[in-house]
Amino acid sequence: MVESKQQWKAWVYLLPCLVLLAIFTVWPIINTVRMAFLENYNGLKEAGGETFRFGISNFTKVLEYKRFLQCLKTTMLLCVITVPVSTFLALLISVALNSIKVLQKPLQTIFFLPYVTNAIAIGMVFAAMFNIVGSFYGTENEIVVTAGIVNNVIEFFGGTRVNWINYGSTYLANMTVMVIYIVWNALPFKILILLSGLQSINKQYYDAAKVDGSSKGRIFWRITVPLLGPMLAYVIITGFIGGFKEYTSIVGIFGASMGPAHDAKRLNTMVGFIYDALASNQQGRASAAAIILFGIILVVTLINLRVSNRKVHY
């Protein structure tokens, strides 16, 4: 503990950091709240000297906006599907990785690669994989040039090709691609955390379980999963937070139009909505949407913490 006479020194050392935090973190947060509660707030108009009344119309307008509800739905769906799926897959993969001796390190590296690869680049590769034709698909001038590798595989096994992401594709097909992409992209971080968690579990618990005559499945569910509890909770909570902020992945596959050519913005997310509002100088509406998003993440995280506190305690 620093003696009280010395405290001013500590504050001086902290000052540069505090100033930066205040300018770039604290003030923007405060300003966001301010902008959200000013009626029809617009940054340009404010610069022009206009004043705004206090009110909640930004919120009501955002909630009335059909596109916003669509964004909310897409975001929620992606979250609710990808977080459990990727967590469970990551758990299985890390347990498998942990139980092999040969090739563990190279495989670990391979599984970690998506983490260090640019999301847009991965998205473009995925788009190519799920692509169906060269151009004009679904129109009268349709020219079928080639199908992506996914459709090639489907056709190889005798299936009919699916229009995943191109002109005329369905919402279900689009979402399927997004789920696959997001799950795959979310795996490395989760595997990394869970694997290090697994490696820190004392081997004696497994020896004890073996002497106690536990089957492999029981050991997994009764010993491994509970002992991984803190790691699982961490991975799930950060997964949900990340999921609600989903944006880049969709840009990666569909581009800035956030949807297939015939229905742009179909896959727009909460963050996408906020960006769009900012781009059209509706800072008030963007701020209101950001605060709504914050509220949702807060509630979901609190629920997560509550559940994990009940499950994870030893």
């Binding site: 004392n202 004696q204 618990y205 020896d207 004890a208 010993i223 509970p226 002992l227 509890g229 030893y314």
Partner: peptide, 9 residues
């Protein structure tokens, strides 16, 4: 076991 290896959870 030496350190008992009681299941902590």
């Amino acid at each position: 076991f030496q350190n008992y290896a009681l299941y902590p959870h």
